[in-house]
Amino acid sequence: MTDEHAVITNSLSRSFGAVRAVDAVNLSIPSGEIYGFLGPNGAGKTSLVRMLTTLLLPTGGSASVAGHDVVTEPAAVRLKIGAALQAAALDDKQTGRELLQLQSRLYGLTRPAIKQRINYLADLLNIDEALDLLIGTYSGGMKRKLDLAVAMIHEPQILFLDEPTTGLDPISRVELWDEVRRVNEDRGVTIFMTTQYLEEADYLAQRVGIINQGRIVAEGSPAELKRSVGSDMIVARIDGQTSGAAEACEQVDGVESVEVYANEITLSVDQGSKVIGPVAIALDQSGASVEDIVLRTSTLDDVFLHYTGARLEVDANIAKEEPA
């Protein structure tokens, strides 16, 4: 298994009526990798994960997971994968241990194996104290961890995580990142995760695919992707018209590309500290009223902007922690 590919897709597509949710996606993910699938709401992330986890049939192309075709050999695929799908799917009326035991039995685990797996995962994911409480009483972060444990109970080779930290507060999010990384390092489990969060993809994934409207628009390691749009970014916010101002910036020496989104002009530049002065002067001369101007290193959001013409803004306030 180690030298094989965990996931291979070939023009994988899924339409819902006229909507092309996933449009000719080609993936090739080696075993042991953490692959991050980054895209906004409605990009097609969940549809893709549901196809790879045998819950949804493709309408075009093919996919093989752990060496088995998802359409013709779903049963073989299921034995090798685990998944925590969007919004922790648990049962509030059971305890964590009962849920793990039920799941183990459906995977045909023997009694001693069940006991060992539960102990091991409780330890790995720090869910010991919560195991014998009803799931209905868990905090959001604890639910996500249990969700992860349930997904791993049968020692899968590949884990699919669909937006594992959406809805979590920042602290639980970072904690879960560490658990995910530990799972990957400890057992070499391949992890395919989707996210809307740049920092998440940046921090966790060895390789990132950026998906927009069902298509992969860019793929590479976070560093490669950022380099592809230039190392430094100058972002100027303009009060009013951006068109004259954007053209003025294009003329400045050292400016490699100019993207306009809403009232922001984003310049990818070679050496930011040298170029920012001339850019400020050019903006001033163009008559634009500049609200502020910042110099920073590039982020995956800039990559997203570069390839799609839109920002991947996710409102940080949507992260809600359920009461413990």
Binding site: A75, L79, K80, D91, K93, Q94, E98, L102, R105, L106, Y107, G108, L109, A113, Q116, R117, N119, Y120, D123, L124, H154, E155, P156, D186, R187
Partner: peptide
């Protein structure tokens, strides 16, 4: 800790009767 994790787990179908009993016990709980 890792030693425990190294149990060889063999995922498979647990058999119809075992499936039914697991599902019904959960429902009764």
């Amino acid at each position: 800790m890792t030693a425990i994790g190294l149990t060889q787990v063999q995922a498979r179908n647990g058999g119809f009767a075992s499936d039914v009993s697991a599902i019904s016990r959960r429902a009764l709980r």
